[in-house]
Amino acid sequence: NKASVVANQLIPINTALTLIMMKAEVVTPMGIPAEEIPKLVGMQVNRAVPLGTTLMPDMVKNYE
């Protein structure tokens, strides 16, 4: 099973992601793959992301 990106803390709306906000975890359903973490740094979330939430592509602005 591949790990996904999971919020390590509450991430407020429009916050630019940093490494300490994210962790890799095997979850179902899968979200953004953990190997994308370096690419996510500096990208903004378009909603508040609660602690423990799996990051999905539609939660990150301009994620492709």
Rank of each mutant, 00 (worst) to 15 (best):
L51E: 15
P50F: 13
N8Q: 15
M43C: 02
T53A: 05
D58C: 03
L55D: 00
A34N: 05
L55R: 00
P38S: 15
A16E: 10
A34W: 10
M21R: 09
K2Y: 15
Y63M: 04
V49M: 06
N62T: 05
P57L: 07
V5N: 01
V41W: 05
L17C: 02
G42M: 07
M22K: 00
M59R: 06
N1E: 04
Y63C: 03
L17K: 00
L55T: 01
A3Q: 08
I11D: 00
A3P: 09
P29F: 15
G42Q: 11
N14C: 03
T15S: 09
N1A: 13
A48N: 08
M30Y: 11
P33T: 12
A34M: 14
V60T: 02
A24I: 14
Q9L: 13
G52L: 13
D58S: 15
M21P: 01
N62A: 15
G31D: 00
I20F: 06
G31R: 03
A16Y: 10
S4T: 11
L10W: 14
V60S: 00
A24E: 14
E35K: 15
A24L: 04
V5D: 01
A48W: 13
R47V: 11
N8T: 15
K61I: 06
T15W: 11
P33W: 10
P12C: 03
V6H: 04
G31K: 01
T54E: 02
L10A: 10
Y63R: 02
Y63Q: 08
D58P: 07
P33V: 11
A48S: 06
K61N: 06
K23V: 07
V27S: 11
A3C: 03
V5W: 01
D58W: 08
I13K: 13
P38V: 05
K61E: 10
E64D: 14
E25I: 06
E36K: 08
K61C: 02
V5R: 00
S4I: 02
P33G: 14
S4R: 03
M21A: 06
V6W: 02
P38G: 07
P38N: 07
N8C: 03
E64P: 14
L40R: 00
G52V: 01
A7P: 01
P57C: 03
E64C: 03
E35I: 08
L55G: 00
G52R: 10
L51Q: 11
T53E: 08
T54N: 08
A16P: 15
Q44M: 13
P50A: 08
V41C: 02
N8H: 14
N8L: 13
V49D: 01
E35F: 05
P57Q: 12
P29V: 07
E64Y: 05
K2E: 11
V45E: 00
E25A: 09
K2P: 10
A16M: 12
V45T: 05
L40D: 00
N8W: 11
T54L: 04
K2A: 09
N46D: 05
K23W: 05
G42T: 04
K23E: 08
P12F: 11
A16L: 09
V26F: 10
M56H: 15
P38A: 15
Q9N: 11
T15H: 10
I37W: 02
G52T: 03
V45D: 01
V60C: 02
I32G: 00
D58L: 10
V49F: 02
V27T: 14
K39D: 06
M56F: 04
K61R: 05
A7L: 03
N46R: 08
Q44G: 04
I37S: 10
V5A: 10
T54Q: 07
K2H: 13
P50S: 13
A16S: 08
T18M: 09
V5G: 04
M43P: 00
N62R: 08
I32K: 01
V45Q: 00
N8R: 07
E25R: 06
T15D: 05
E35C: 02
V41P: 03
V5Q: 00
G31W: 02
V41S: 10
V6E: 02
A3E: 10
L17S: 00
I32L: 13
L40H: 01
P29R: 04
V60H: 00
I11F: 01
Q44S: 15
L10K: 13
I11S: 01
N14G: 14
P57D: 08
I11L: 07
N62W: 05
V6R: 14
A34T: 08
I37V: 07
T54R: 07
P12S: 11
I32N: 00
K23S: 12
N8I: 08
Q9E: 14
T53G: 12
L40N: 00
N14F: 12
